[in-house]
Amino acid sequence: MTASPEKIRYRAEPSGALLIRPLDAMTLIYHRASGITHMVTEPVPEILEAMAGDALDAAELATRLSETFDLGGADDAAAIIADRLAELAELGLVSAVRG
């Protein structure tokens, strides 16, 4: 049985694994393990920073982000963050670690 996407826990690549350069509205992320450069917008850099070294699911991450940012409706925020996390997992910038 597959868990609901919002319950999956993710861990970000350790900070030394990424080079992050904010340019303008976009931020560049160089991923050392893959050698791939990703161009992202908010809230991706914020998500990666907030995750630090911890394994978090979308709701936990939303709580953590809301300490620094105004996220509006919190339920909605968790769903949006879950989508971003799934995308980041596909790129290999975060990994699912549920278990």
Partner: peptide, 8 residues
């Protein structure tokens, strides 16, 4: 190998 996925 990447991190374990879904416990595996």
């Amino acid at each position: 190998s990447p991190e374990p996925v879904e416990g595996r």
